[in-house]
Design a protein around this nucleic acid. Structure first.
Lengths: 215, 215
DNA sequence: AAGGTAACCGGAGAATACTCCGCTTATCAA
DNA sequence: TTGATAAGCGGAGTATTCTCCGGTTACCTT
C-alpha cells in the first residue's frame, strides 16, 4: 500500500511540484476539472479542516463525479498537496534563489537554520493542510516536496561536514518537523514557536557546528 | 480529532502500558473478550499485515461483535499497540532496570545511544505493527508508550546537558525513528541498520557529546 | 472537416470504518 | 439468594473510501 499509493499519485498528477521532465500534456477538460476541484476544496477548507471533509463532498461542490476526484488526486493527501502547491513553490523559490540566509550566499549552517525556521513557520501557518497531507498516506510523504527539501538539506550538510552521512542527517533534521509532532508539541505541550526554533538551532549547532571552532 | 481519539483510547483501554494509578477493574467477560480479540488478531497478522485486515474480520475471527472490538481498542492503532504490548514491556524493563548500557549504570549519552539502537532493532523486528500503530491515529501517537520513551530520554539528556531543552531534544531524537520514515529509508533508499545506527550515533554525539571534551 | 483513438468522465457499487442503542450479564450489597 | 445497577455485548445501520467500466469528449491526422 505504501509504494502503491505513492506511485499512483506520481502517475496521476502530472506536472506538479518536483517533476522536471516532460510528461504527456494534460487534456483541457482534465485541467478544467482539476481547477474546479481545487477551487471547491479551497473554499470548503475555509470553514473546516480538510480532514473532516469527505471527498464526495468536494466532488459535489466542484460539480464533478467522485471518480474524477480520485483519479486526479488519488486520495485526500494528494488533494492536500495540491492546495499546498503555492506555498511550496514560494518556499522552494526562496531557498533556491532568494536572498540569504535562506537563499544562496550564506554559510551552509546558517542556510540550514534558516530553512528549518522557514519550514516551521510555514507549518504553523498551514497546519491543517500539512497535517492532512502527511497523515493520509503517511508512507507516501517522502516523495515529492519532501524529496526536494531533503536534497537541499543534504547538499548543505555535505558542504558543512563533508565527512558526515549527509543524506541521513537531512532526514534527521526534517524528522522533528513532522506535522503531527509539531501539533502535539504546540497544542498538548504548550511549546511556542520560539522554543521550537531554539530547539532546532540546538540541533543544527550540534550537527553542523555554527560555533567558530568547527571545520 | 487529535485530542478526541487520544482521550478516547485513554478511556477505553484500562490498565495498559503506561498507566500507573488504579482504575475501575475490568469485568471478567470484558477481559475474556479482550484476550480473544488479541489472540485472533495475532493469528491473523501472521499471514498479512494488520493494515490490510479489517476490524470486522478480526471481530468475526474472535467470535465477538464489531462493536466490542471498537469499544476495547478504539481503532486499528489501539489494537496494534495491544499487540506490541509484550515487546514494549520488555523494552521498558530493559532501560529501566536492565543491565547497562541500556539500563542504569552507564553514562547518559551511552544510555541514550543504547536506547535508540534498541528501539531501532525493535522497530525493524515489528515494522508492520509499529507502522499500523503510528499511521492510524497519527496524532495520538504521542501518548502512551511514546510518552514513556520521551520521559526516559529527557531525563538522560538533562543529566548529560543540564543547560539544554531536554524535553525538546528527546522529541528530536525520537523523531528520526518514526516508522514510516524508517520504512522509506530501508525499503526505498536501501539504507541498512548499520547505517541508520551510525546516523543516530552522530546525532547523539552532536547533541550530547560523547567525546571527552564536552561538559 | 471528418474520423480514429486515447484519455477522460460519472456515478453506481463494493468494501471498510465506525456508531448507536436495546438487550444481557457480571458484580456487589443487603 | 436476590435484586439493583452499571458495564458490557452484538450487529444492524450509517458514513466514507475507493474501484470499475460503459459511454463521452478532446485532440491529432489526413
Amino acid at each position: 500500500m505504501a509504494r502503491a499509493s505513492g506511485s499512483k499519485r506520481e502517475r496521476e498528477e502530472p506536472a506538479r511540484l518536483p517533476v522536471v521532465g516532460a510528461e504527456p500534456p494534460e487534456r483541457a477538460d482534465a485541467a478544467r476539472n482539476r481547477q474546479k476541484i481545487v477551487a471547491a476544496a479551497r473554499s470548503l477548507t475555509e470553514k473546516r479542516s480538510l480532514e473532516k471533509i469527505s471527498l464526495d463532498e468536494v466532488a459535489e461542490a466542484a460539480g464533478v463525479g467522485v471518480g474524477t476526484v480520485y483519479r486526479r488526486f488519488g486520495d485526500r493527501s494528494g488533494l492536500a498537496y495540491a492546495l499546498l502547491d503555492d506555498s511550496e513553490r514560494a518556499l522552494q523559490s526562496a531557498f533556491l534563489q532568494g536572498p540569504p540566509p535562506l537563499g544562496p550566499g550564506a554559510p551552509p549552517s546558517a542556510r540550514v537554520r534558516a530553512f528549518l525556521h522557514a519550514y516551521l513557520d510555514r507549518l504553523l501557518r498551514e497546519t491543517d493542510l500539512l497535517l492532512a497531507a502527511e497523515t493520509s498516506a503517511p508512507t507516501g510523504r517522502y516523495t515529492g516536496a519532501y524529496a526536494a527539501h531533503r536534497a537541499h538539506l543534504a547538499a548543505l550538510v555535505a558542504e558543512a561536514r563533508p565527512d558526515a552521512d549527509a543524506a541521513y542527517l537531512a532526514d534527521a533534521l526534517l524528522a522533528p518537523l513532522a506535522a503531527p509532532l509539531i501539533v502535539h508539541q504546540t497544542v498538548d505541550l504548550g511549546m511556542d514557536a520560539a522554543r521550537l526554533k531554539a530547539g532546532l538551532d540546538a540541533l543544527v549547532e550540534g550537527l553542523l557546528g555554527t560555533a567558530a571552532g568547527r571545520p
